[in-house]
Amino acid sequence: MSLTTDQRLSGVSGGEQVQIQAVPDERVRAHLLRIGMLDGPVRCRTTLSRGPVVLERNGTTIALGDSVADDITVAECE
């Protein structure tokens, strides 16, 4: 698996696999960390237009609002 250049999570499309790189918000970072979303690649299940991004990893699914996703940097997994 290799990673491509950083991009915003809000720009990721459904079906893509990404690795979360940076989460500036302390509250969101702590939460993603404890539920295992920062352990490895996550799959984007779906994104709603200017709405939430739905991520999945190992059976855990989380929805992040557009403003939250826009602050998060990810790298696409190839």
Partner: peptide, 8 residues
């Protein structure tokens, strides 16, 4: 306001 962060 805080953005949405919720488990499904």
């Amino acid at each position: 306001s805080q953005g949405l962060v919720t488990e499904l």
